[in-house]
Amino acid sequence: MAKKKTTVPFQGTAEQEAKLKALIAEYKEIPGALMPVLQQAQGIYGYLPIEVQQMIAEGLNIPLAEVYGVVTFYSQFTLNPKGKYEISVCMGTACYVKGAGDLIDRITHILGIEPGEVTPDGKFSLTNTRCIGACGLAPVMTVNDDVYGRLKAEDIDGILRKYMNEE
């Protein structure tokens, strides 16, 4: 079973915290406040680490377990910030049958992160996406705006090395 976790240290600023507190104050008395607060909190921080979820749980007087349950239910909420290089592996049908799973395994092996996670230095994040409409190139992955097609697992090392060497 997937055990999701945040893989980078929290580096929230006082400014972000002030914004979150104002947000919570605005929604405090409104029933059903959790979803909009989570959405806007993700807007403030870019993701929803435990520190942010705790502030929301405390502020809205909702058990943390419930907050976390909602965050992990909706795929648009994320426990990790995007990396400097955002790797997306297409898991649409065509890419999937052409071996996209092997690509993910290789990336996980090299970077030590599962889909939904980010490397501790914040450089790479990994997601698996639905079909990106480039089935002719299956299996496909993108790194930020660069598209790589007709991949094999052994191609991954070289591609990642390129970004590792960049600052």
Binding site: M1, A2, K3, K4, K5, T6, I50, Q53, A57, P63, L64, A65, E66, V67, Y68, G69, T72, F73, S75
Partner: peptide, 25 residues
């Protein structure tokens, strides 16, 4: 959550991964 006002467990994740657990498992 309701009887005991403790609420340390809840459903986490979704679909086939759904499971009952604590916050951040």
């Amino acid at each position: 959550a309701k009887n005991q006002f403790v609420g340390v467990i809840g459903p986490n994740d979704r679909g086939y991964d759904s499971h009952i657990g604590s916050a951040f498992d």
